[in-house]
Simulated scan of single mutants.
Amino acid sequence: MNFPTDKLPNIEFKNDEPLSKYTFTKTGGNADTLAFPKTREELVQIVNTARENNVKITIIGNASNLIIKDGGIRGVVIILPNFNKIEVNGNQVTAEAGATIIDTTIAAQKAGLTGIEFAAGIPGSVGGAVFMNAGAYGGEITNAFLSAEVLLPDGKIRTFTHEQMDFSYRHSVIQENGGIVISGTFQLKPGDKEQIQDEMDRLNALRRSKQPLEYPSCGSVFKRPTGHFTGPLIIKAGLQGHIIGGAQVSMKHAGFIVNINHATATDYMDLIHLIQKTIKKDFDIDLQTEVRIIGDDTKVGEVSANS
């Protein structure tokens, strides 16, 4: 069933919208309906209307660590660029889900608050970072997290504490309960503004030197296997630089797959599967994807909210 946009005339919707316009890989099929709520009330209205009409809901955040398959996404897709407010209250920073983690770290630095510098170069949104317990350079969201406001599938907003989030490596309970992160609050500590900025600058320089930021990509593709680093494994397997279609295993960092020539999501998926198959054969290691992979291989029929 299609989402009844006519029931919510004051909310911005785009029908049959190419999601490649929003993903960092510049790939992905179309959304049946893409929704841009501006307020919590509008977000709740979308969720309730979808539930009442048995329409699937998908939230895509900043689409930085995400692959959307070429068949696109059925139902209604929600994106939250309008949810971008960041507030500092004492030693706490509260950021709405659509705010970027980078902007959140900048706000913390300006307030002289330390504890989230590790995230200074993570390109995702606060909602996405909380959803997957994003991390970099030895830090993870769990280290600074205090609480989050979450819209649950029943249309109710609930506050989740750190303990309730069940954080682990690239995991939170939101991945199981179907909730939508509305905002996240981080508990930080007073620090020296110049020292905080110096650390952010150091990590960003490190990121620029090691990661292929000059090409579209979905960030780090695979989770780090216990006792190993993914990039060196891929290099040892002889796959660095390997190309399928327009997607290439990065020559700068083998843990990244970059879009060098109008790649499709299928190119990405085929390359991911080749890497997994080869690493399993050569080293008996099962590589698990860190990148979130969603959508349909081909656009066929409708998908219900219960499927």
Rank of each mutant, 00 (worst) to 15 (best):
S183T: 08
S183R: 03
L206D: 12
S209F: 07
G184C: 03
P216Q: 07
S217F: 00
V181N: 05
I182R: 05
R202G: 08
Y215A: 09
D198W: 11
R208H: 12
P190G: 02
R207C: 09
R208D: 12
P190T: 01
S217K: 04
Q195K: 15
P190A: 00
D201A: 10
Q197S: 13
F186C: 03
M200Y: 10
L203Q: 10
R207D: 02
K189Y: 11
A205G: 04
K189S: 14
M200G: 07
L188K: 00
K189R: 14
L188S: 05
E214M: 02
L213W: 12
Q211F: 11
K210Q: 12
Y215V: 06
Q187L: 10
M200I: 15
G191S: 10
Q195P: 02
D192W: 00
S217P: 05
S209A: 14
N204P: 08
L206G: 06
K189Q: 15
R208F: 07
C218I: 06
R208V: 09
R202S: 12
I182V: 13
P216M: 07
R202E: 14
E214H: 10
P212Q: 10
I196P: 02
C218A: 11
L188F: 08
P212M: 08
I182G: 01
R202D: 15
F186V: 02
P216K: 08
E194P: 05
S217E: 05
S183K: 05
L188E: 04
D198A: 14
D198P: 09
L213C: 07
V181S: 02
P190E: 08
Q211V: 09
I182W: 10
P216L: 05
L188G: 03
L213Q: 11
D198N: 15
P190D: 03
L206T: 12
I182C: 12
P190N: 02
S183Y: 00
E194Y: 11
D198T: 14
Y215P: 00
Q211H: 13
D201T: 14
Q195W: 10
L206V: 02
P212E: 10
L206M: 13
S209G: 11
L206Y: 12
F186W: 01
P216I: 02
R202F: 15
G184P: 02
S209V: 08
M200S: 07
P212C: 01
D192Q: 01
T185F: 02
S183P: 06
Q187Y: 01
I196L: 05
L188M: 04
M200N: 08
I182K: 04
D201R: 11
Q187F: 00
T185G: 01
L188R: 01
G191K: 06
D198G: 10
Q197A: 13
Q197L: 15
L188Y: 06
R208L: 12
E199S: 12
R208N: 13
G184I: 00
R208Y: 07
S183G: 01
Q197R: 14
D192C: 02
S217Q: 01
L188C: 04
L213V: 09
D192G: 00
I196Y: 09
D198R: 15
T185D: 03
C218R: 00
Q195D: 13
C218D: 00
F186M: 05
L188V: 04
L203S: 11
D201P: 00
T185C: 04
S209L: 07
L206F: 11
I182N: 09
R202P: 08
K193A: 10
